[in-house]
């Protein structure tokens, strides 16, 4: 679905040459995968995201979307249609003053007939559970609701894939939960390919696959369980691990025989109970 080959990119602001932001990066994301991308600020995550819909084109290597090279200028709008983007600040990506008119923006640009736009808008709003608010003014909505409208605006293009660049960074816990719920629903119902860039480890833990970036490279690329069990490495990259993983890891390094590839509260509680039982039974 999304493929980067030997991708190289650097920003050149004239006076001082900045080092490579993306350096010889290879990545292949399959249809229907939910991939979380982690990394501290400035590691190149956002730059990578902008390559997936041709907002940026590689200075070296290639990026393919459904087999189309993003350097192919004739196909740029097809690429943009296939890859929906959601950005960090909900206020800065909503174009219209009424929710449904904003969701209609992309289909309008694609020249889709009115009747079908109506159908797509209603469908998209129902998917993100904002249909009830279709006549509302966006600036009166909560952060989480605005972001769901932005997601609806992207899926109204009927894309193959959605790339989200820190969509929850400006939200409160409730808003974040709303957005995560929407993402998981999209994946489950529409088999949508999702790329989620985030700073929140609990969000990444819900993905199928986690990519950790540092300095323009991919450092780790694995299932969340395997990624978060590398507690020391993640901390050295300026990242966190979920508290329960850290706790299990800490217990383990204090000599308690307990696995620390745990991601959820339930898993962690299971492991602890297992350990207690094993102590009690004397093994």
């Amino acid at each position: 679905m999304l493929k980067a080959e030997k991708l190289f990119y650097s920003y050149d602001n004239g006076e001082k040459k900045i080092e490579a932001v993306l350096d010889n990066l290879n990545l292949n994301i399959k249809k229907g995968e939910f991939v979380a991308v982690l990394g501290h600020n400035g590691c190149g995550k956002s730059t990578l995201a902008k390559h997936f819909n041709g907002l940026l084109t590689p200075l070296g290597g290639n990026v393919y979307v459904s087999g189309i090279n993003t350097k192919d200028e004739d196909k740029i709008w097809e690429i943009r249609r296939q890859v929906g983007m959601v950005f960090q600040n909900p206020d800065n990506q909503i174009v219209a003053n009424v929710v449904e008119e904003d969701v209609a923006f992309a289909p309008e640009n694609l020249g889709i007939p009115s009747a079908e736009i109506r159908q797509r808008v209603d469908e998209a709003l129902k998917t993100v559970d904002m249909y009830h608010y279709r006549k509302h003014a966006p600036h009166l909505l909560s952060g989480g609701q605005k972001q769901r409208v932005a997601i609806a605006g992207a899926i109204a293009m009927r894309p193959e894939c959605i790339v989200m660049d820190e969509p929850t960074a400006m939200l409160d816990p409730m808003g974040r939960a709303e957005v995560m719920e929407t993402i998981l629903k999209l994946k489950a119902r529409e088999n949508m390919t999702v790329v989620l860039i985030t700073h929140y480890m609990d969000e990444a833990a819900q993905a199928d696959r986690v990519i950790v970036m540092d300095d323009g490279h991919i450092v780790i690329d694995d299932v969340p369980r395997k990624v978060f069990s590398q507690v020391e490495l993640l901390k050295s990259l300026g990242l966190d691990v979920p508290q329960v993983t850290e706790l299990a890891y800490e217990l383990n390094s204090s000599g308690i025989e307990i696995d620390y590839d745990v991601l959820t509260v339930t898993e962690c509680a299971d492991k602890i109970m297992d350990y207690v039982r094993s102590v009690k039974s004397g093994n």
Binding site: P173, M174, D202, P242, Q243, V244, L247, V265, T266, C268, A269, I272, M273, V276
Partner: peptide, 20 residues
Amino acid sequence: IGLNVPQVNILFDELVSRGM
């Protein structure tokens, strides 16, 4: 009331409910 309590706090509640 919509606040996210630290994960370990939830874990400990869970452990207590399991009889620890």
